Amino acid sequence: MEHADLIVIGAGQSGLATAALAPRHGFARSLVLESADKPGGSWARYYDSLTLFSPARYSSLPGMCFPGDPDHYPERDEVVDYLLEYARRLPADIRTSTAVTSVTRQGGMWSVRAEGGQNFTASAVVAATGDYGTPFVPDVTGQAEFGGRTLHAADYRDPEAFAGQRVVVVGGGNSAIQIAAELGPLADTTLATRRPVGWTPQRPLGRDLHWWLKHTRLDVAPIRRLLRKVPVSVIDDGSYRAALDRNDVDRRDMFTRLTADGVEWADGTKEVVDVVVFATGYRLTFPYLTASGALDGEGAPCHKVGVATTVSGLGFVGMEFQRTFSSKTLRGVGRDAGYVLSRLRKG
Score class of each variant (00 low, 15 high):
residue 140 V to E: 01
residue 138 P to V: 11
residue 119 N to G: 06
residue 113 R to Q: 15
residue 128 A to S: 08
residue 112 V to Q: 04
residue 140 V to Y: 05
residue 121 T to K: 07
residue 134 T to A: 15
residue 133 G to D: 12
residue 118 Q to R: 13
residue 109 M to F: 11
residue 116 G to V: 10
residue 145 E to L: 12
residue 109 M to A: 08
residue 148 G to P: 00
residue 124 A to L: 05
residue 117 G to W: 10
residue 126 V to K: 12
residue 132 Y to S: 10
residue 139 D to P: 00
residue 125 V to S: 11
residue 136 F to Y: 14
residue 115 E to Y: 00
residue 110 W to H: 03
residue 133 G to H: 08
residue 113 R to G: 14
residue 113 R to C: 06
residue 140 V to L: 05
residue 124 A to R: 11
residue 123 S to C: 02
residue 137 V to K: 14
residue 118 Q to S: 13
residue 110 W to Q: 07
residue 145 E to Y: 02
residue 132 Y to F: 14
residue 135 P to D: 02
residue 145 E to I: 15
residue 120 F to Y: 13
residue 129 T to E: 14
residue 132 Y to M: 11
residue 144 A to Y: 09
residue 132 Y to P: 01
residue 121 T to N: 03
residue 139 D to A: 03
residue 111 S to K: 15
residue 146 F to N: 01
residue 122 A to W: 00
residue 128 A to F: 05
residue 123 S to D: 15
residue 117 G to P: 14
residue 114 A to Q: 11
residue 143 Q to E: 06
residue 133 G to P: 00
residue 110 W to L: 13
residue 132 Y to G: 01
residue 137 V to I: 05
residue 131 D to V: 01
residue 147 G to A: 07
residue 141 T to M: 04
residue 135 P to R: 01
residue 139 D to N: 01
residue 109 M to G: 02
residue 134 T to E: 05
residue 136 F to K: 03
residue 136 F to M: 11
residue 121 T to G: 14
residue 146 F to W: 12
residue 141 T to E: 09
residue 109 M to W: 06
residue 141 T to C: 00
residue 132 Y to T: 15
residue 110 W to F: 13
residue 135 P to Q: 04
residue 118 Q to K: 11
residue 146 F to Y: 13
residue 140 V to M: 10
residue 129 T to Q: 03
residue 136 F to A: 14
residue 127 A to E: 13
residue 132 Y to N: 15
residue 135 P to L: 10
residue 124 A to W: 02
residue 118 Q to G: 11
residue 127 A to G: 15
residue 146 F to E: 10
residue 110 W to A: 13
residue 141 T to G: 04
residue 130 G to I: 08
residue 111 S to V: 15
residue 121 T to W: 07
residue 129 T to D: 15
residue 131 D to M: 13
residue 143 Q to K: 15
residue 109 M to Y: 05
residue 134 T to K: 05
residue 148 G to Q: 03
residue 137 V to N: 04
residue 111 S to F: 12
residue 137 V to D: 02
residue 109 M to L: 15
residue 145 E to P: 00
residue 141 T to P: 00
residue 117 G to S: 14
residue 125 V to G: 03
residue 148 G to A: 05
residue 123 S to M: 10
residue 134 T to P: 01
residue 109 M to V: 10
residue 135 P to E: 09
residue 117 G to E: 06
residue 144 A to I: 10
residue 116 G to C: 13
residue 135 P to S: 02
residue 129 T to L: 11
residue 122 A to G: 05
residue 132 Y to D: 07
residue 133 G to F: 03
residue 128 A to I: 14
residue 130 G to D: 02
residue 141 T to A: 14
residue 145 E to F: 06
residue 119 N to V: 13
residue 119 N to Q: 15
